[in-house]
Computed example of a mutant assay.
Amino acid sequence: MTRIISDLSQISAAYDTLFCDLWGCLHNGVAPFRAAVAALQGFRARGGKVVLLTNAPRPAAFVTATLDRMGVPRDCWDLVVSSGDAAQDAMFAGAVGRRIWHLGPEKDLGFFNAIPAEWADAPAIERVPLDEAEGIVCTGPFDEQTEVPEDYRARFLLAKTRNLPMLCANPDIVVDMGDKRIYCAGALAALYEEMGGTALYFGKPHPPIYDLARRRLATIGAGDGGRILAVGDGINTDIAGAAGEGIDSLFVTSGLAAGQFGPDPDMPDADLLQRWLATRMQAPTFTIGALR
């Protein structure tokens, strides 16, 4: 049974590292949550490490730039590790070929153009039309503000007929940008699989992003992270991923599942919460209304 807490400081002494999600926990896609920023600053002040572990489909440098523009202070985190980083490694390794149809907005072009040093000598990746592609890299809809997965059914039928594998750079299904809910690459990949296509995933809850986070922790002298707590609002990504890695988790109820746990967003109703978790067969170690 999950333990409901009201403040991160109630449990933080038991952990060396936080794997903290971004959307719904640290910000809403528009502005940071000040209480969450303060909580992470407090954790670091006590000697802990904070890894912002995100399913953003862009490499960490682009995520960092977005956080800077949003006003998230750099003293609340140590590392940013993205699904884009892990998926980019797989793409340059040839997971879906070298001739790629990119399904995603222009803001994600850094996935192709910002080549990591370790892949500088790899054969080039060429972006081509769908009918010339060996594989698909999906970072989201072309227009995330207006499009839904069904808009791509005809193109996915062609891709499936040609047996094109899809690399999904963001397993999230939806995120909330301010007050608007938008579809992510994970929703498109789910439709492609439903139609009989093959999709490959590298973000939460899948192992590659956690392996990458631990490797990057080692580069800053933090070993493998020690005692890790995963913080997130995605029950099928953040919480399921933590369970798969054998690490403790803190479920934030005011994010994607907001409104499911009673009238007080700061204090989820225990009975509603337990019933909701049981239907999803997940058991986060702790639960909090909002990260603070």
Rank of each mutant, 00 (worst) to 15 (best):
P171T: 04
Q260C: 13
Y210F: 15
P129R: 00
P208A: 08
L272Q: 09
K160V: 14
D108E: 11
I115Y: 07
P116Y: 15
T198P: 05
Y183N: 03
K107I: 12
A258T: 08
L79C: 01
R214F: 07
P284Y: 06
C76K: 02
Y152V: 13
R46A: 15
N28Q: 09
C168P: 01
F202V: 03
F261Q: 11
A35K: 15
Y183M: 08
A65V: 05
T219R: 02
D151F: 06
S9G: 08
G262D: 10
A122C: 04
G246I: 07
L167D: 01
R215W: 02
R155N: 03
G241T: 05
R69T: 06
Q145H: 11
P116H: 14
F43W: 09
R46E: 12
V96F: 05
A86S: 06
R99M: 13
L130M: 03
L273V: 13
W119G: 04
N170Q: 12
N28F: 03
W23G: 00
P32R: 05
G241D: 02
P265I: 09
K180I: 12
A159M: 00
T17F: 08
L188C: 07
P165L: 01
G110M: 10
R275K: 14
I11H: 07
G223H: 02
E132K: 14
K160N: 07
T66Y: 03
A39Y: 10
R155M: 08
S9C: 05
T17W: 01
T287R: 14
A185Y: 12
M195G: 12
A199D: 10
A185D: 15
